[in-house]
Design a protein around this nucleic acid. Structure first.
Length: 510
RNA sequence: GCCGCGUUGGUCAAGGGGUUAAGACACCUCUCUUUCACGGAGGAAUCACGGGUUCGAUUCCCGUACGCGGUACCA
């Protein structure tokens, strides 16, 4: 269109935690902008002063930072189109609303909340399911369309509370092209006269989004599908304000649905089904209600982002693991799905698992360090790295290193005796007693040495190696779990290995 | 109710007038391993329904059903 530079924006309302659908919207905006060498703007849509939530803006910023989706302009860093908080732009909007009134595209409405309610009650009695302030009823209300010029001027002069509403045409076809859905058409007559400027002087979303997108030279506007029904209002506003040539291209993103049943995914579903919905932990300062986040649950940001990208988009090749660079290169808004996608937490876990596999033992050890700290366990980072590598392929989350390898850090206190006793024999008892002696004298206590000494002695005694491995495992770990036994022994070292055999041996006798 | 958007296996989905309708997650079987996991080999879908158009429709058109979204001085 009339834009020579790609500029997109994410415009959240700072009213609470950031939903994964919100993060995905940011992602698609970001990828699109960067792919085209454009700019990504963060704009805070805080026009509803009654819904202000302390800390919500900072929280959103932190989420974006965690995901690596940093805005080029925004309230945190400013920019050429500052301010980026709509509450700080308040005085800007009125002139445009008034311009619309002057040109006959909008009007003053003096109806009080009570009068509006009365109107709705009246309409409902007449069988109107959802009464709208529209072309059918605006002539029955108190506004500059029904009042005389003198009355209106007087009301205005007396500072009578009023709003400005758009005057939707009675029967006009409003069509626009959505980058995802193609051509979409609405009849203006089915849309109500949305409030543009509220009684407190703040714009509503409808006015603010158009004015700010224009002023901030936004070239592409991506938002959730829930905005589709109000698109005709926005399109008309662009036209009425005389800015149609500068109107951004639109794309309405499909919704993320709950895994069971139907409907938009919300934080309640996460609580109910046991998975996060917000990017990071969030505690509502008013209710103290806590909602957990993907970050704290143990998701790697790169896995979270990759997973989100695949929720509604794919490159057509079947590839699912994309580095951020690849995403930047291959993303295209046209390949975004039209239909909503049910969120599948199992698949999300799989993505995290994939990214854990890419990490080195050292990286995993670093990420795991806080868990050990919390448990007050001192461990050599190099050893933790070895352990991490050993258990890595069975992890969905970094924290699970503990579940998979706690026995590396503390000796078992109980043993799964039931798994051993039924097959226990004096010969096996003798084997371990003798092997302990041998272990104390091996030159180097490494995997190969341990394993060959174990196997040689077993052969000598005429016992099948397999018969001995499970008991040995249980001696070291307490149960039937963990990575390869000899690898465990190597990490534990000679002293600890012998000590554990010694402790466990007596408990195996029937 | 009205308006809009959508509908390929349990889930994410590729594809698109003629195909054995990809792949992934999950599931099941087998294998490897006398733990679990990983790995490997298999298993399972006629594309919501009804009409058209066409030699031929899962793909195009129209209906219907169903689902979702919206219907606030919230975003």
């Amino acid at each position: 269109m009339a834009h020579n530079k790609v500029r997109v924006r994410f415009a959240p309302s700072p009213t609470g935690g950031l939903h994964l659908g919100g993060v995905r919207t940011v992602l698609f905006n970001y990828l699109f902008a960067k792919k085209h060498g454009g700019e990504f703007v963060l704009r805070i849509e805080d026009t509803d002063q009654t819904r202000f939530v302390a800390g919500a803006e900072e929280y959103i910023l932190e989420c974006l930072e965690w995901c690596g989706l940093i805005a080029d302009e925004g309230p945190h860093i400013g920019g050429p189109y500052a301010p980026y908080r709509q509450s700080e732009r308040k005085q800007l909007y009125r002139q445009y609303a008034e311009q619309l009134v002057e040109n006959g595209y909008a009007y003053y409405a003096f109806d009080t909340p009570d009068e509006l309610e009365a109107m709705r009650d009246r309409e409902k009695i007449n069988g109107n399911q959802s009464p709208q302030y529209n072309h059918h009823i605006r002539h029955t209300m108190r506004n500059s369309l029904t009042l005389t010029k003198e009355e209106v001027n007087e009301l205005l002069a007396n500072n009578t509370p009023h709003v400005i509403r758009i005057k939707m045409p009675t029967d006009t076809s409003v069509t626009f092209t959505d980058m995802i859905r193609g051509e979409v058409t609405f009849n203006s007559g089915t849309v109500d006269d949305k409030v543009l400027l509220k009684a407190d002087g703040m714009p509503t979303y409808h006015l603010a989004v158009v004015v700010d997108d224009y002023l901030m030279k936004i070239s592409h506007a991506f938002r959730g599908e829930e905005w589709l029904p109000s698109a005709p209002v926005h399109i008309l506003l662009w036209r009425y304000l005389g800015w149609e040539d500068a109107m951004p291209e639109w794309a309405h993103l499909p919704l993320i649905l709950k895994p069971d049943g139907n409907g938009k995914l919300n934080k309640r579903d996460g609580d109910r089904l046991g998975f996060p919905v917000y990017a990071m932990n969030w505690t509502d300062p008013r209710s103290n209600e806590f909602t957990r986040g993907f970050r704290e649950m143990g998701f790697l940001p790169e896995a979270f982002v990759n997973m989100l990208a695949m929720l509604g988009w794919n490159d057509g090749t079947g590839q699912e693991i994309f580095s951020f660079e690849e995403l930047l290169q291959k993303f295209s808004i046209e390949r975004v799905h039209k239909a909503g996608a049910k969120f599948d937490f199992e698949k999300a876990k799989w993505f995290n698992h994939q990214y854990i596999q890419k990490k080195t033992g050292e990286e995993l050890a670093t990420l795991f360090a806080p868990v050990l700290d919390e448990k007050d366990i001192q461990a050599d980072p190099a050893t933790v790295a070895v352990i991490a590598n050993l258990v890595k392929d069975r992890l969905h989350f970094v924290n699970e290193i503990w579940d998979q390898g706690f026995f590396f850090f503390q000796a078992p206190t109980t043993f799964d005796n039931e798994a051993v006793k039924p097959k226990w024999t004096p010969e096996k008892q003798a084997f371990f007693e003798e092997w302990m002696q041998q272990l104390a004298t091996v030159p180097t206590f490494d995997l190969a040495t341990i394993e060959s000494s174990f196997k040689n002695l077993a052969a000598e005694k005429g016992i099948k190696v397999g018969e001995l491995q499970l008991p040995f495992r249980i001696m070291l770990t307490g149960g039937k779990f963990g990575p390869a036994v000899f690898a465990i022994a190597e990490v534990l070292g000679a002293v600890e290995t012998i000590a554990r055999i010694k402790t466990a041996l007596p408990t195996f006798q029937a």
